[in-house]
Design a protein around this nucleic acid. Structure first.
Lengths: 349, 349
DNA sequence: TTGTACGCGTTATCAT
DNA sequence: ATGATAACGCGTACAA
């Protein structure tokens, strides 16, 4: 038979009880060395390995972690997929999580959630051992989640109500500061800030804070006309903003964005309208995606190691799953200015 | 208690047996309408929903499907992650699978596999209901897999020994043909073909076949010096090939590649060495990734709908999981030439 | 070390 | 035709 051997098969083969086999498997030191060896041999011979489903049912532990992607209400049902499709950021992050999880015999599940009920069900249905929240979620969801009793790691959250969870983040304010400062040092005085809706994104707000700080320090005034908000981070939205800038004839030479994606879209639109980057506009991205050094011009950007962010998040989660009662941690990863071709010293008039 | 209600709780609440509840849940028509309503009410009131782990254990069905990524032996252990990280292709594909799976209450697991044993174990451990193979795998793995007794969908395979599985593919030969033909029509006569190792990649071989066909039809000779093979599809390898072309002073004006990634890398290297695309080299990519219309120059490429490929693969898999004995199917998705800025009519001398 | 109840839903068997 | 009982899937962990 190609049938998978069970723990009872092994037990029979080794002339012991299933319990003993289980003890050997789990390193419970209740077993004499000689029986242990017999059991190990039997396991080897039969090619036995435990069924995770059964383990999961009896231990109430699935060796499964979940990554939660945000779905706003106005998105179509199938938005998980489209979020993934368009956002290279998620891709790298998930890879990092995957890698660490796999090393520890965990598998990773992905979902988008519209409401907390759905989320709770998902966790319960699959007996998930831990959760990573990637993105912004409403307060109510966290209240629900904290009742779930499983470790949770948040990414890039600043809201007060998230303070009781683990968090992996970067110094977003510094990122915004570095980006603006870079342009200022290049002589730019009229600098735009391009982000998602600041009311909805504390991350972008932090970056904006850093941005403003740099301008203030340089004695430059923060001009609200040079703040551009878009709903979602896509290439297309980047193009739209660039066109808006051109249409409205904004006076500016420098642009700080919260995402390489937006920056790339903007550059494309500028080029389409015969504007040159960096000659006409200097643009700083954010993230340093793998594509960003291969665009033309290559992107000056604030680099964060998204892959490592995923790794750290998974490590944190694993530690918490391993033993509860670990204290809540905040891990801050570094950001760094990477200067490439999309920014340039301004040509004074 | 916040404890999840079990089927027995529901049964008690409705004054029936657990079995009856199960029947109602599974639509077994053994239950009178009045009891059914009672049960439904109890379910509603208690907020009951079944535990997938338990269902999985008793039904031997997990509502989980797996996507298998290839790991060659010489890759590091953690290569799943890096494959994902670098390959935007996978990203879009997986999104498509995810979406369809989710609609049917399935979750999707991802893994890279080095050998068939590991793969088999993974399937067994998690009781996976179906498998999608994304990429090229050795023959031996398929022999093992066919014994597993779960539906399998292959992507882009042409090997003889894969003929007994479902397959989702595109017309790769046509793709190669269209790409070459486009360049020929633009007046190019010395056209390179850039691919992975043709001995290892039947897909690239098909495209090469189409490529050669177009050249032959046009009375052009296929020059082996203009065939460039690389090990892996990365931006960096694209750059390398471009540099090789420049270093060796190859006489060519047109380039057909098997991937947008390679094309983007090549363009970058050309630009770095003061060569202009498309003025000096016309380049055709393959895939039409979401980034490809935002590079500079934007890519002329052979478009395939990778997202849809994922959707189709998942649909096929779901159908097969639903009822076995469905006949093996091959689904061929269309390819299409998308002309953008990276190709141009040759300036005759 | 072992026997065995348990976790939770399913389904074959049996009863009305 | 309805519905209950109980064994089962597989590993775990407590009592003995």
């Amino acid at each position: 038979m190609t049938n998978k051997p069970t723990i009872r098969d092994v037990a029979k083969h080794a002339n012991v009880s299933p319990a003993t086999v289980s003890y050997v498997l789990n390193g419970v030191k209740k077993v004499s060395d000689k029986t242990k060896i017999r059991v190990l041999e039997a396991i080897e011979q039969l090619g036995y390995y435990p069924d995770f489903t059964a383990v999961s049912l009896s231990k109430r532990k699935s060796n499964l972690i979940g990554i939660m992607l945000p779905l706003t209400d106005d998105m179509p049902d199938n938005a998980t997929a489209s979020v993934l499709k368009n956002n290279l950021y998620y891709n790298e992050f998930i890879s990092g999580v995957e890698m660490v999880a796999r090393e520890q015999q965990f598998d990773t599940l992905l979902t988008g959630v519209a409401d907390q009920e759905e989320c709770r069900k998902w966790v319960k249905k699959r007996n998930l051992d831990g959760l990573i929240f990637l993105g912004i979620f409403p307060k109510s969801i966290f209240e629900q989640m904290s009742k779930l009793g499983i470790p949770i790691v948040l990414i890039d959250t600043y809201e007060e109500y998230t303070k009781l969870f683990n968090n992996v983040q970067i110094d977003d304010e510094l990122g915004g500061y570095l980006a603006a400062n870079h342009l200022i040092k290049l002589g730019h005085k009229n600098i735009a800030f391009v982000s998602t809706n600041l009311n909805l994104s504390p991350v972008d707000t932090k970056r904006f804070t850093g941005f403003k700080k740099a301008l203030n320090e340089a004695g430059l005034e923060v001009n609200n006309h040079l703040l551009f908000e878009t709903r979602e981070i896509t290439f297309e939205n980047g193009m739209e903003i660039a066109e808006k800038i051109l249409n409205e004839n904004k006076e500016l030479t420098g642009i700080v964005t919260v995402s390489d994606i937006l920056a790339i879209g903007m550059i494309k639109a500028f080029q389409y309208h015969q504007k040159h980057v960096p000659n006409d506009f200097s643009i700083v991205g954010f993230d340093d995606l793998s594509i960003s050094q291969f665009t033309t011009p290559s992107l000056t950007t604030i680099k964060q190691d998204i892959f490592k962010k995923g790794e750290k998040a998974a490590e944190l989660l694993m530690n918490n799953i391993g033993d509860q009662g670990v204290e809540r941690q905040i891990i801050e990863l570094p950001v760094q200015l990477v200067v490439r071709e999309s920014t340039k010293k301004i040509v004074s008039n």
